[in-house]
Design a protein around this nucleic acid. Sequence first.
DNA 1: GCGATATGTTCACAGTGTTCACATCGGCTC
DNA 2: GAGCCGATGTGAACACTGTGAACATATCGC
Lengths: 211, 211
Amino acid sequence: MPQTASSYHHGDLRVALVDAGLSLAREGGVDAVGVREVTRAAGVSPASAYRHFDDHRALVVAVALAAQDRLAETMVARISALTADAGNAASTATARLRGVGLGYIEFALAEPGWFELALLTFDPRPGGAPAVIVDSEVPAPFLMLVGALDECAAAGVITAAQREHAEWPCWSAVHGFADIATRGPLVGQDPAALAALGERVVDAIIAGLRA
Amino acid sequence: MPQTASSYHHGDLRVALVDAGLSLAREGGVDAVGVREVTRAAGVSPASAYRHFDDHRALVVAVALAAQDRLAETMVARISALTADAGNAASTATARLRGVGLGYIEFALAEPGWFELALLTFDPRPGGAPAVIVDSEVPAPFLMLVGALDECAAAGVITAAQREHAEWPCWSAVHGFADIATRGPLVGQDPAALAALGERVVDAIIAGLRA
DNA sequence: GCGATATGTTCACAGTGTTCACATCGGCTC
DNA sequence: GAGCCGATGTGAACACTGTGAACATATCGC
């Protein structure tokens, strides 16, 4: 960590570029994070980005990982709030499961630009980032869902058979709502109404798990 | 409709461009439909596209509307197949509701490139296309969902209170699954397994509607 | 037949991602 | 401490994109 950020060599350009990308993406979404735009925001030449990232895609992925971190943070906050005043193991497990979904939706509504970025993180295709954050103190969003479902099964909220592959109905409903409210027909609706609708979606899919 | 497609003036360049865009999008998704690429595929100069579309976005929207048509077609096919051998009004209504979701998912899995395009159609933001197809013999996907839910309410499958805003849990789950299976962590999974999972998602959300 | 109009072309410009030769600095070895 | 070397940032270039303006050509109404 060199304390002498000379005029030529930057202190830590990689994180500076990711920060700049994060800042740009907050308003303009993924389209706003281009190598020229990001380097311009960081006050540096375009080509300098290629010392730290293989190509444009790699830069976007790095910013996306940072955005996923933010997503994970608001999810744990929501989970903590909901599980705080739960009684027995079953209600705690249910509260945790609800917190996973509601936190995901809360983040999407509050930070649509970052949310769009964070989604790239789940794409396993070549060039996509791994779905699991390894260099973070906070577990990846998907792992939180898995953990919450396991806890529900252990507490008897759902049966072992219902637990099987339950990730996907849950993830589908929550992610789908976030996408619809963020890029789809629900864009621009009243935030309070959206939050209520999101709660309904979460509760509906949890109920549907036991059918 | 001029029957003389001379070398200079094209017969009907607008539909030719949309067709070319459709063909390109089938493999490359929305990114593949650029004005230069589309006009190149149609054997015409780039600027000619601007005689028929205001800008790149308008061209994409036109192709997206065509893709939405295809989506709607496979949905009605699936609905017909499922409602064919249903007994009473309640089972017919339920079959129609399932058909809406399963048809949507079927199309997404079969034609991910076109599906990506069709999604743009639901974006109400400036530049987005209207959600309702007006110049088509087939109703828009969303209207099919609304109709199926109304029929369920009429047949007593769900109560009037449960009917209220039921579009959004349903749309969220089905669209979310399609998105996950198409651009998310489920990409590349075994098609049969995906179809089974999709069925589970649809049945789970329908069950959850009555909670 | 002839002009008006619609449609397609050519050229130019700004912006993008990317590469390559060069400049500059920090840290290593002697 | 001197000197080099690898790491890091720069500048100029290339190919590509969307887009607009001026021009060319074919079709239609009189």
